[in-house]
Amino acid sequence: MNTPHHDPDYNFGYLDEQTKRMVRRALLKAIAIPGYQVPFGSREMPLARGWGTGGIQITAALIGPADTLKVIDQGADDTTNAVSIRRFFERVSGVATTELTEDATIIQTRHRIPEKPLEAGQILVYQVPQPEPLRKLEPSEAETRKMHAWAEYGGMYVRLYEDIARYGHVATTYSYPVLVNGRYVMSPTPIPKFDNPKMDDMPALQLFGAGREKRIYAIPPYTSVKSLDFEDHPFTVQSWTEPCALCAANDSYLDEVITDDRGGRMFVCSDSSYCEDRRAKGHVGKELATAEALAYVGHVEGGSDVA
């Protein structure tokens, strides 16, 4: 096997082997208890707490020369922290990186699940700021741990129902809690609830790392993941009245881009790789020209694979 070139001042993947073993043991237990938060000896990383150190430690424990890594933040490969984390792994592991969802063996993400369905064999690593779905109900870790131990989730349903009574809707739009394998209530991290259904029965392995809170959890492939809801108020996801302004997709999560100071706005795919792929295949949104004028996208003659 070819050993990729990595910074010789650090072990491959940055973490020392003992730390990797510790993280790996936690990962295997996490898979065996879907949705349960395994405490782990989270290390101080050279990137700030809250900036993805949990996901980074998981990726560092997983990654090998045969991997191809994709890093996204807000669904996009070019957001600053995604760029920073990708550069970190290029330096400490030297492995190949990609922006194409289908080419990646490991996808580290913050706040989104890619639009393109993930396949068996791929691993999605989530960066988790707050792993505890019950924390807003109960600030004490000692208490929430007991609530999980005894599956005392009534308070969570009450909270969601209070929203319905007040607003007519559950007012949680991201980190929308899910029940995993019929047992543990889990925070899907701040992905928009739009992405929740993708977690259910996903063929890919989903791993979650909270560095500051020192927790790892997992959803094995083909595992039931249900968003908490009520018979009279079933779970729904966000929808938009118009398709993506760039690629005309009507099945993706859209970000709002303010185009002027007179209320002008357009809605574009949050998953930049998905959007580019569609445009490369000839899909044209209504405001592609506007976007070009705003230098939000560039026009490349004939190119098909430009980073």
């Binding site: 096997m1 050993t3 072990n11 491959f12 993947g13 082997e17 990797k20 073993r21 790996r24 990962l27 295997l28 898979i31 065996a32 424990a61 997983l62 990654i63 090998g64 020369p65 045969a66 691993i123 392995l205 094995p220 492939p221």
Partner: peptide, 17 residues
């Protein structure tokens, strides 16, 4: 030790998944 344990671990991860 570094790359050998990495491939063994990934197979274990696959096996438990």
């Amino acid at each position: 030790p570094v790359f050998g344990s990495q491939t063994v671990f990934r197979t274990l991860l696959d096996a438990l998944s």
